[in-house]
Computed example of a mutant assay.
Amino acid sequence: MDLHHPKPLGASARSLSAGSLRDRLSKLTPLNPVADALRVNVEFVPAKIPRKRRLQMLTVAIWSSILVISAFLFLYLCSYPALWPFLAVYHLWVVYVDKSPENGGRISRRFRSLRVWKYFAEYYPVSLVKECELPADRPYVFGYHPHGIIGMGAIATFATEACGFSQAFPGIVPHLLTLASNFTIPIYRDIILALGICSVSKKSCSNILKNGPGSGIIIVVGGAAESLSARPGTADLTLRKRLGFIKIAIQNGAALVPVFSFGENDIYQQMPNEPGTTVHKMQKKFQSIFGFTLPLFHGRGLLNYNLGLMPYRRRIVVVIGHPIPTVKCAQPKLEDVMEVQRRYIAELERIWHTYKDQFAKSRTRELRLIE
């Protein structure tokens, strides 16, 4: 055998070798799997969509980015020297004068009733289920569950009249509460104040409830910690260690009203961040420093149905349960607080079991109290 001069391959052998090479290459991982996945999985919006649906999508898109829009608009105004005196006065007024976030806000019924909020609620859509009458002869503390990624159902139900809250519960003035840091953002703060949104500080809660009968505050009880557990098909609540809102209710003689939002966790997908992972540890560290956290989530986009930061169109049903009366006490004992919490949790679980087969058909597990 001549090792230095191998015989040339015939036509059939070359064909076989080429075919074998193609088979092997076809089994290799693509060089750009992300791009290939996007080409295969992204579902684009059709060209022809009813005008109403476009308005709904536009409204949600603007609200989803309103904080960033407000900040950039303020910076843009700062680029005009002629406006500096006015902006300086505005800044001083926000920092040193305006105490509205802790005193009930500057709620505007006309602003809350604008047609644009109807488009916002109809996008998902968000609807309200009223289980019983809430007489306006006492103050109320509404506990909203779950937090979800952003809490769009809470905004539609309690910060606007899109779901008809004032018609369902006449005489009750709702104030959705959020972090005080949101009121440091120019323009954005004035928008949410007009919606009746206020600071979630203890002082703010007490000031609003001291207005007497008919005053109401809505606290998204789980907060930032619960947002890290928000995933479609689940209802993992951070509740057992949350006693502050119960103490506030007792101190002001307010009735506690559990509220469960079916579908709140379904409007976004969250990246894996199981407890113990590096991502989860970083998120908890961020929360301990800044008071809030940043879930790694995604939804849909303006031009597609499955890639972007807009929420998915998935139904949200907000069920407002039966009130739990409290006896006013300036310094409630721990056992009294725990007893009210027990009744509160029992009512919340009743809501879940009553409506889960109707509004949570795609659930992957039952309601859980994880903390």
Rank of each mutant, 00 (worst) to 15 (best):
I208L: 12
I320D: 01
L21A: 05
R368P: 08
I267G: 00
R138D: 03
K130L: 07
G148I: 11
T234Q: 08
I289E: 15
S70T: 07
L73Y: 00
Q287V: 02
L294Y: 07
W63S: 15
S199V: 14
G148H: 09
R39H: 03
S65A: 15
Q287G: 01
G143L: 05
D236Y: 01
L31R: 10
L77P: 00
I267R: 00
S26N: 05
H4S: 14
C329D: 15
V200Y: 06
L67P: 07
R300T: 06
S166F: 01
N265D: 05
I150F: 12
I217V: 13
F165C: 02
P46H: 05
L92K: 13
P323D: 06
E102A: 08
R53L: 14
G291A: 12
S229C: 05
V340W: 00
V60M: 11
E133R: 07
I324K: 01
K328T: 04
P325M: 06
T293F: 03
L3G: 07
A346L: 02
R14Q: 09
F120N: 08
M57R: 15
P186M: 09
H353M: 12
R22T: 10
I289Q: 12
E339F: 10
P170K: 06
S199W: 11
L237F: 15
M310Y: 12
T277I: 11
K241P: 00
I246D: 02
Q56F: 05
K203H: 09
P213Y: 03
R242E: 11
Y123Q: 13
R315A: 10
S215F: 06
A61W: 13
L239K: 13
N306Y: 09
K361P: 00
C198S: 15
K247L: 04
L25N: 09
P186W: 08
K7W: 06
F86V: 13
L309R: 11
F262R: 01
I324R: 00
L302F: 11
F44V: 01
S65V: 15
F359I: 05
F169P: 10
G143Q: 06
Q283K: 11
K284F: 00
R300S: 06
L334R: 12
F165I: 04
I320T: 07
G214W: 07
K130F: 08
V42L: 07
E366Y: 06
P139E: 05
L369D: 09
R189K: 13
T364I: 15
Q287M: 14
G263M: 09
D2W: 05
S201V: 09
A71P: 02
P139F: 02
F359W: 05
S26R: 10
D2Y: 00
C329K: 13
S20T: 12
R300A: 04
M271L: 14
L179M: 11
S227H: 04
R24W: 06
A37L: 11
V337D: 08
G291H: 14
T178H: 07
G196W: 14
L73E: 01
K328G: 02
Q269C: 03
S100P: 02
Y144E: 02
V116Y: 09
R115D: 10
K118A: 01
V327D: 01
K328Y: 03
G105I: 04
V337H: 13
G301I: 06
L75S: 07
R342V: 03
G143D: 06
V94I: 15
D23M: 13
V60F: 06
F260L: 13
G223M: 09
S204L: 10
S15D: 10
G105A: 07
P101V: 05
